[in-house]
Computed example of a mutant assay.
Amino acid sequence: MTSMKRRALLGALASSPLFTFPAFAQSSTNLKISHQFPGGTITEGDFRDRLTRMFAQEVEKRTNGALKFSIYPGSSLMKTNAQFSAMRKGALDLSLVPISYSGGEMPEVNIGLMPGLITSYEQGYKFKDAEVGRAFDDMLKAKGIQMVSWIWQAGGMASRTKPIIEPEDARGLKVRGGSREMDMILKEAGAAVVSVPSNEIYAAMQTGAMDAALTSSTSLISFRLEEVSKALTTGRGKSYWFMLEPLMMSKAVFDKLPKDQQNAIMTVGAELEAFARKSAQEDDNRVAEVYQKAGAKVADLNEATVKKWQDIARRTAWRDYAAKNENCNKLMHLAEKLV
């Protein structure tokens, strides 16, 4: 059969209503999500792990399976402090991690755990759409990070000894703050600071290397710190410790995806912010119950006490951060409009 006859026959078959070309299965892309928190299920466990599973399930559904996800809890894929840098390089797809952990690499991100800057969930969830949030988002994109879900959490102080409420209560103790700026106000209050990620607090308190630790209410529960604590100062109602712990994605990986898949990721990420806020606030209350049941003394902060810590922050951490570079100065100026 000549090539002309062969093409004519194929053309006739293709135009026949009884003829169909074989269907090819759509290939899918598998993305990895890493975080430091205990693993669970989509309905049980640390809400941050649950959020990653809800995100994965919903994005897979909306992309008809074109995007699939593997979740690695408990820093099982890579060490906690390596995740941010790995995303910037395109070596990790997504991570849910306290953004202030990367302050050594990028000082601008420490605004995400700036003492006394955010003192309520209302303020925190205005951040994203305010001028400061837009500037922060643009800066992160330029550095290789795509914000997906903006998650804010209040925090409290677990202590092996006594409740740490007023600044003077921290004097002489070894305390974990969670960011350079938080450590600055602790030092000003007379404490010695210890720097470890939240998944290493238990061991440090158990051995006595640390007397007390500031961390989110959810981490106070998930890492079972009530087992090594005699006192808790909660973040319910009032707190000078609010942390931005977002779900983030490598911009290099995000940019390679088709537009419809990018839209699915960003839409689902934004929708899950309501779940994150509700869950964090529930944990602010639940943590008090957990610690009381374990026999710890539980205390809360009032507005006057928060203002004392905030005043220390203004003259130390806020000023130091703004002096870091032009970006930090701009972000601090814009953020103060939310205070």
Rank of each mutant, 00 (worst) to 15 (best):
E108V: 06
K141I: 10
L117A: 10
S95I: 05
P107V: 02
G74F: 12
S28F: 02
G90P: 04
A91D: 15
S100P: 05
L92Q: 07
M139H: 15
Q57L: 06
Q83E: 10
N81W: 11
T80M: 13
K143G: 12
R53D: 14
I151S: 06
M147C: 09
S76F: 07
Q57F: 11
L92V: 10
G39H: 01
P98D: 14
L94P: 02
V109D: 02
D138T: 14
K32T: 15
G112Y: 00
P98F: 02
E60A: 08
S27T: 06
M147K: 08
R50N: 04
A66H: 15
S100L: 11
T63Y: 07
T63W: 05
K68P: 12
K32Y: 12
N81A: 13
I145S: 03
F136R: 10
L31E: 07
Q123W: 01
I118M: 06
L96I: 04
F127E: 13
N30H: 10
F37M: 11
S75H: 09
Q57Y: 13
F84H: 04
I42Y: 08
T41W: 00
N81K: 15
M78N: 15
F127V: 09
K128N: 14
G103I: 06
L67C: 07
S85M: 14
M87Q: 09
K32Q: 11
D138M: 09
L51E: 08
G112F: 00
A135R: 14
E58F: 00
G90C: 04
G112E: 00
V109R: 04
V59L: 05
D46G: 01
H35L: 02
P73F: 02
P38T: 03
G104D: 09
D129R: 04
I42F: 08
F47A: 07
K143F: 05
V109K: 01
S102E: 08
I118D: 09
F84D: 11
G144H: 01
F37T: 12
S76P: 13
D138E: 12
K68V: 15
Y101A: 08
G40C: 03
S28I: 03
F55A: 07
L31R: 02
G116A: 12
T80K: 11
A135V: 14
K128A: 08
L96P: 00
L31P: 01
K143V: 10
L92H: 07
V109N: 00
G40D: 07
G90V: 06
P115I: 04
S100C: 07
E58M: 06
I111R: 01
F136P: 01
D49G: 03
L117E: 11
T80R: 08
Q57D: 15
E44S: 03
P38V: 03
Q146N: 12
Y125H: 09
D138S: 12
P115F: 00
D49F: 00
S149H: 00
I111V: 02
F37S: 09
I42S: 08
P38Y: 00
K126H: 11
Q57R: 13
K126I: 05
M78E: 15
K79V: 14
I99K: 05
Q26H: 07
W150P: 03
A56F: 03
E105V: 05
Y121H: 10
A135M: 12
I145P: 01
